[in-house]
Design a protein around this nucleic acid. Sequence first.
DNA 1: TTGAAAGCGCTAACAG
DNA 2: CTGTTAGCGCTTTCAA
Lengths: 355, 355
Amino acid sequence: MAKVPPDDLLQTVLRSAPRERLGTTRSRMEDVARLAGVSTATVSRALRQPDRVSPAVRARVDEAVERLSYRRNLMAGALASARSMTIGVIIPSMINSFFSATVEAMEEGLEGSGYQLLIGNSRHSMEIEERLVASVMAWSPAAIVLTGRRHSRETIRMALDADIPIVEMWELSDHPIDTIVGFSQRAAGRIVVRHFAERGARKLGFIGAMLDRDYRAVDRYAGFVEAAAEAGFAPPVEYRFEKRASAIGGSEALRALMAQHPDVDAVFCTNDILALGGLFEAQRQGWSVPGRLRICGFGDLEFAAASEPALTTVRPPRGAIGTKVAEVLLSRLGGKPAGQTIFDLGFELVARGST
Amino acid sequence: MAKVPPDDLLQTVLRSAPRERLGTTRSRMEDVARLAGVSTATVSRALRQPDRVSPAVRARVDEAVERLSYRRNLMAGALASARSMTIGVIIPSMINSFFSATVEAMEEGLEGSGYQLLIGNSRHSMEIEERLVASVMAWSPAAIVLTGRRHSRETIRMALDADIPIVEMWELSDHPIDTIVGFSQRAAGRIVVRHFAERGARKLGFIGAMLDRDYRAVDRYAGFVEAAAEAGFAPPVEYRFEKRASAIGGSEALRALMAQHPDVDAVFCTNDILALGGLFEAQRQGWSVPGRLRICGFGDLEFAAASEPALTTVRPPRGAIGTKVAEVLLSRLGGKPAGQTIFDLGFELVARGST
DNA sequence: TTGAAAGCGCTAACAG
DNA sequence: CTGTTAGCGCTTTCAA
């Protein structure tokens, strides 16, 4: 069995491969094959399914790869196999750290697997989501991850047509496109009512942002209202605004809400950042929290534990969702059958000083 | 000149193209060419450089594309041209909303251009950055965007070798790899000293997180210390910690700093989130802000304007950086020569209640 | 276990 | 302005 050739052959191999189109002398699989004394088919196998070639060949290929500092051209591979090492991920917002945290966890879970995330930002719009899915499809992704369970007809059609694993996340559904990893947003809204009731609240308020597009927030709202009715509360008074959730928005909302309904003594904000603004506003107005007013947020963003008073909030499994999505994906992409397709990761009410 | 054929030819075209490898009947450029009665080369031109084909042909191609709902296979195009419609973007953190905001603005600036961002998260590590650049390179990106001006030797080599536009951002440098869009972090640190001096501060403190890896924060620190000396202050006392910036970290840091140095009356936090924690801690401890203690942050994160007291901070051009990067990229990718390669977008000290 | 050969779907000279 | 002709670099039958 031929050994890896000496250095002068290495030189020859390198020289014989002028790469004019790339600005660079980048070696191709053929160079590796020649240096290792095998065919490109074997190199391909050695690289992707090492157990399907003899140990000796594998070693020679590895050495050749090393010496040429060869890196596979993924585009070519993707074209040939009609499948790329790409995973399309569509999230509604990059700035919102809910999804960033999920994506970070997903990246970590996928680390070393060779899969690359192609991240799209739908800005909470189903139309943009559709466009993003369409353009991601042009990359023949190995899988697609969508946020939420509501998508345009066309998005669903494309996803189904692609015949690849589709994972939805951050919500729950009895009929996921394929697999869904999340928790019940509605239940998250409900639990807040129970907590307020336990703390002796009498008149509930609600503050929400972007409810025309953020369906998860709408679900939390629905759960909140529903549970309030069941618990015998009067219908919660509410203040909503179109713009994305912000501390300033939260401050203004609370001020407006209290001006109109001075009897409110417990407010649920669909987002911790709104609650933060509320906390500051209460301080400015001299409303003691939780004495005069109880405030509960959603998200358990990092500052929630640090605020004064510390913020009671619902903690979604931000990182866990990403980790589980990665796990599901790896399993499916590794060829394992679907198995469980609905993963309820739950949530937790973190009671702190603000209620 | 032949018209677009009637429907039965359309049927034939569709039927004659079995796409078994994809789960789907997805048409190829050849189908479009046949239906439009031209060659694939012409279709390719009509799609990518519409002005280089006759209006009549363009119209027929467009119609054929429409009827077949044809979408170009980008992998194939990228392979053939050794250049993809991808732009690699490496940021140090996804959760940090500095960079998320920049990326969002960049996305908006690139909207409609057909370029897709391939986002990598280096977690503030040059080694990870290097790995990410290497794997992004496998996609033959049209350009690369890096954060900061410090990169590993190998990263720089790969970037240079690729012979594509390389944009660094969020810092300034006299010798960018290619082009740099940002502002002077050092100057940002300096201006805080001037502001503190104007407000009558006498003893300066500094709180920083992750200074072993966040070079931008280190530069701000250096500017702060340098300007403090020039202004005749005693060397600022400091508290640093390894973990990523957080409100809790900020609270703890301030408490520790003040315990050791009760004479400090003005603290610069390298990040608004640290300052937020500081604000809450001051409230808990009963230190009036700005009476007993002045606090200045960096970032002008959204909550800074909403807090009580509102937070004085340095506002970096978060969105503007992304917008400018997109503009530079579009120009360069459109074939225009480099021109200006250093873009100083400046920053602004936003004086509010906390100082 | 390995190799030969035939593409994957598109782009890019180069003629015409 | 348009078509012909070669690939881009890899994967994948199918035989050996």
